[in-house]
Nucleic acid binder design. Structure first.
Lengths: 331, 331
DNA sequence: ACGGTTCGTGACATCGATTACCCACCGTCG
DNA sequence: CGACGGTGGGTAATCGATGTCACGAACCGT
């Protein structure tokens, strides 16, 4: 077993130079004699030396680590996004630290504060708070994902929520539906609010009025979404179609429709989810791939890290309607 | 905005002491006069000082970070495990760094090496390699999850694969099945090998011989599992029941049974998965909850970190059969 | 031949904390 | 009364790397 700790000083000693020169070789400084360089490189290889990342970070003031802050790392959507980021980071020899906000603005602040204190090179964040002025002076690069930054000019990778919702609702209208219910999270979130707006706009444009009892815009979790769905179906004049505006809701709606054998009700969901294509009928979705979003965010961040100082960009991840059956049912 | 950098020296200056004394207060050293202590604490609060984690780690030789190494962070099972670990870490003010091995032993080595070099306090790892001697001398605590350590005596949190497989197969036999197919990953993995052994043992005990064509023990991914399932169903004498021994396989099998309208074939899966309860019939599973596994692993790790030096333990996460319909079909 | 570059190099300070070691009290005991 | 032991606290070394700056040698132009 090679010795426990090999320091730069050991390398320098082995090569017969000073630590400074060894450091120069390590960092690819050009002002080192060819002969010296090879001697140091030999010593590095010989001793299997690798620099101490902590010491380096302390001195340089920036760590080869990127932070990922999401609602919940256990959420399959964010897990996939994170996985993609980790892949990109690994390819560049960087490490990734993750943290979940649980949708709490305070916690978001706490986590970001901790990460900047650790001098992460950059952070990819799905914000929970609605005001990001506090990030004004941070020295690390930031990329916002899924939700926009407020009061801060940073790169962001977004989903066109408004358009996606319109696509979904238009599709249902095209199948002949007039009573289209909506299930969504609390509209205090931008994302949710925009999807709700898209839903209303598309219906308005088609000249369809929306009875408020069809708008269930406050389902925080799967069981609640399930309960609301059951409620909708018990109405005197039930909806003939449902637009579920996020994955959590979808995972509540779909099972209920099936267990109540009400698979005659059309369903379009915002966001693909596991097994959506295995149900009978398979669930039609507006797809925004987490892989793509993760890649875009990572690309953006690494682009910044390599020194680009362009103005902040807003990238919109592509959306497409995946017809699978449930959204093509007629009333 | 408070000043960008507050160092311990600033606190000491404000309190009129030396950095050493300030450091003592910070680390709860008892040999500090009550009066001095309060003065320093006031200064800390006043300046909103928080110690630099990097500098501290460099000096102390151990970082307040725990590493999580899994096959893939995007896998919903591991994502949930990771989420639970992160939750536990956050509660203790520690950060979490994650990395995926992609099942590569080399990469496992690389990642663990990198983490120990970063002086993580501990690592929770789902190993990809089959020999862990190389971890013999590491200074950080380790907890293995889901697969056993080989050549190394460490805490581990496991699933009783053998028992689980027997439970699944017994259940199918009890429903009257005799031709029970198996789908699994490559049996080089311990987990897989044990489940396979359980499958064979249970059948043998029931006096049922297993035609080798029913054993599809090499499905690396979802599409492959799907293809194998279709193949099984095309056989001259097809199986009346299928035991899918891991989640990835299950996500291949279930959709195929549905899309081929062969929901008359009984199915029991090892590991719960999203929407398993929404299918018609819902999928019967042997459940081993990732939340529980994550918690157990985190508990174990933090227990070690707080200084326990008991011999290594082997914890087995509880398993239960969740009857949902697909496993109760008769031939 | 001499001052001015450029090049390769090393001594030393530095990042921000912890810690080894030493000192200055104060009270007490022999 | 002086040595001793326990407190409270300071100085400087340390963790492992990088940045500053200065220095000697070779090189160049006039």
């Amino acid at each position: 077993m090679t010795a426990r700790k090999v320091r730069l000083a050991d390398v320098a000693a082995a090569a017969g130079t000073s630590t400074k020169t060894a450091s120069r070789v390590l960092n690819g400084d050009t002002r080192v004699a060819e002969e010296t360089r090879t001697r140091v490189e030999a010593a590095i290889a010989e001793l299997d030396y690798r620099p101490d990342p902590l010491a380096r970070s302390l001195r340089k003031g920036t760590d080869e680590t990127i932070g990922v802050v999401v609602d919940s790392i256990a959420d399959p959507f964010f897990a996939t996004v994170t996985g993609e980021i980790e892949k990109a980071a690994f390819a560049r020899g960087m490490t990734v630290t993750v943290a979940s906000t649980g949708r709490s603005a305070d916690r978001e602040r706490l986590l970001l504060d901790g990460m900047t204190r650790r001098r992460v090179a950059g952070v990819i964040v799905v914000p929970a708070s609605t005001d990001h002025e506090y990030l004004r002076g941070v020295s690390c690069s930031l990329v916002f994902v899924d939700r926009e930054a407020v009061g801060l000019d940073v790169d962001s990778v977004l989903v066109d929520d408004y358009l996606g919702a319109r696509m979904a609702v238009r599709h249902l209208i095209e199948q002949g539906h007039r009573r289209i219910a909506l299930l969504s999270d609390a509209p205090v979130l931008q994302t949710t609010a925009r999807r709700l707006a898209g839903y209303r706009a598309e219906l308005a444009e088609a000249g369809i009025s929306v009875p408020e009892e069809l708008v269930q815009a406050n389902c925080p979790d799967i069981p609640d979404a399930a309960a609301r769905t059951a409620e909708l179906l018990r109405m005197a004049e039930p909806p003939t179609a449902i637009f579920s505006s996020n994955i959590r809701c979808s995972m509540g709606v779909a099972p209920v429709l099936h267990s109540l054998s009400r698979t005659d009700v059309a369903l379009v969901c915002f966001g693909d989810f596991f097994m959506a294509d295995a149900l009978q009928p398979a669930v039609t979705v507006i797809d925004h791939r987490p892989e793509v979003i993760g890649q875009l965010a990572a690309d953006r961040l690494f682009h910044r890290l390599s020194g680009a100082s362009e103005p902040a960009t807003r990238i919109e991840a592509p959306l497409h309607l995946v017809r699978r059956g449930s959204g093509e049912l007629r009333p």
